[in-house]
Nucleic acid binder design. Structure first.
Lengths: 214, 214, 214, 214
DNA sequence: CATGAATGAGAATTCATTCAT
DNA sequence: CATGAATGAATTCTCATTCAT
């Protein structure tokens, strides 16, 4: 898992017929774009900044992605896939409770190691997802579908208490996402001296642990 | 409570020394601004749009709020207060578990009746809160502080299971926020035909119910 | 002399039919305008600033001077007269050399006690005097005319060496003006540690003293 | 000397790494800017005007100088150097009196052939030099320093009468500047029919001639 | 592949001025 | 006398995008 999560981070697959230089540049651009878009949102981001960060001229950048939106979309597409990865390892043959708790752990870790990616997606979603096309989501949807089915079957078999599967997943996403994005802000909300004794992980385990306790 | 939440919605209290016209226009402007900012974010929003929506000339709008940022800040400030309201009704003398569950309910309702406000705050927070000044947060902080103390005392008295107070609140915020913002997107993620049997409220009650069960 | 130079400084004569309040406000406005216009030039000056400095509302200021230009013109007019005053005391019956040197002294002193006024006039003149109407200058012209005649008569009588009268006056104006306006800048040009041993007055007396020496 | 004064007039040296087009456009822009700024001052000048005069689009102009102030500064910088040129030819080995008088002549000529440049500098200086940075002045300062030393040495050696060196230079600047800037205005002040028999040059030679006469 | 040059459409402000009260 | 409210025109500057080389 960690390999796929860490490595290609932002790139999308190399396309056929591309020079090595082209592949390299695409990657560099997407990486710079991730920085910029996640920090300032779609409108706040500027192509000039991305080009500078990537060490290319604006015109050259636009040779690779001919419009701002195209670049943004490419970025989203490459992220959406990665985003779904932790879910795939949910094992039908494992212990249900253990499997789900370990999914929570994996998801939390992913969010924390990829805060920019998380922020970007959250931001896009906040705007109502105007740049996410249906097809982009299709494969993700399939995974989700199969896993909600799995959870439902566990539930039906009485191996975990009854719980609405989609809501369970959604809540996990929201809570883990939260720890990537809201972190610094939460400190400000609560004040620097707020005494938070538990780690996010401990808390989440307690929360989902008691939900899934028989 | 609901009165304060519904009514002034976006405006802040009328200030001393303000003409009637001023009060009216300030309200209209803030309302239009809420629409625009929550839909497009700070950078994506345009003063021209807000002015048009408010039925004023750009110059006239700037007569009331002399810069885009001032308008945005005024909006945030007026929202932050409202945002903290549901927390205030957490009653030290009530039944702990019942009190907390009903806070969840109130918070969820607030989020759903004020999706624009929620989106705006979330957006701001995602960017790292560059427009939120310390003082804006102070009163909110005080409420939060007193309520985390209350929860801790309940926990210490064994009236609810041990749970980290700040984390509990944070999780409630994240989850309820989620139902305002991510709703449509979640539908898209899961597919239109996804069968979600429970309502958000049912799910949240189950989740926090089991966490707080003795 | 000093009375007329010091006192009305910027005001113009009170007009018939004006309330006391009106007279007072006119004066205050002109005074504030002098500050602003002399500091930033015609274009750089803003009516809002002047109004604020005068403690009036913009609209009220425009009640007195209905356009920016009118205010500026009124200011210039009131200054031009004052500006010519030192020349009037040039005494046909005194010692020519002594009279001229003492005119230099008076002019220098005026410039230094009224730097804002000097700067304003110089600025206007630099732009080619687009706001100075012929009539404004008429009375000044008459004085100058009579005094150049006087100087010429002294020169013709051999009481001072031959020197072109208009040029003499012009040079005095330019040099004294210079000491009001260019002062700080000259320090910067020469460096803070420049050792200037003479005062402007000493230098000017030496310069004109040797020119007028028999 | 005159070559350097006439030729690059407004531009500064072409920088390394500049395209031919860039060099050309920079020159054209600076030239148009000189017209506009010298005529209306910094605030009165408009980028749109300059662009029109240069035959470029506003946006294209801003491609070369990304802000109004940058353009203005570039202009000033290129002028300041030129401005100091006549002083450099002051020859330690020549006849002191003759050298100084010929400096006056050179300076006067420069001022008259470059009235826009003179007006611009004078204007800037009148505002207190808010756009002149210390470094811009450094080289100029060095020249001035070496020349005041020279004059002082002449004075100490008794080859010219005692005169305060900085004051001497300052007076020359003020008087010559005056003939560029105040010319038309002086005509108006004195009236069209004023009989000015001497030329500026004659007058200045008389003035400084008598000051420097042994 | 890459880039310098150019641009049009808009962005936020500023500001003198007008109008009704 | 005085002012709050309103505005239109202009101004500086930004930015994604295009074009020619």
């Amino acid at each position: 898992m960690s390999a796929r999560i860490q490595e290609p981070r932002s790139g999308g697959e190399p396309r056929r017929g591309e020079t090595l230089i082209q592949q390299r540049n695409r990657k560099i651009i997407l990486c710079a774009a991730l920085d910029e878009f996640s920090a300032h949102g779609f409108h706040g981001a500027s192509i000039a900044n991305i080009a500078r960060a990537a060490g290319l001229s604006k015109a050259n950048l636009l040779y690779y992605f001919s419009r701002k939106e195209e670049l943004y979309r490419a970025l989203l597409t490459s992220l959406i896939d990665t985003w779904g990865v932790p879910l795939t390892s949910l094992d039908p043959d494992g212990d249900p409770r253990e499997e789900l708790l370990s999914y929570v752990r994996r998801k939390l870790q992913q969010t924390r190691t990829m805060p920019r990616e998380s922020r970007l997606l959250a931001n896009e979603i906040l705007q109502g997802g105007p740049h996410l096309e249906g097809e982009t989501l299709e494969s993700l949807r399939r995974i989700v579908q199969s896993k909600t089915d799995l959870i439902r079957s566990w539930s039906a078999a009485g191996r975990i208490p009854h719980v609405d599967a989609p809501h369970l997943l959604i809540s996990i996403w929201a809570l883990t996402q939260n720890y990537a994005d809201y972190d610094s802000q939460i400190r400000r909300l609560l004040g620097e001296e707020a005494d938070i004794s538990d780690t996010p992980q401990t808390f989440l385990e307690t929360l989902y642990g008691s939900l899934l306790a028989s």
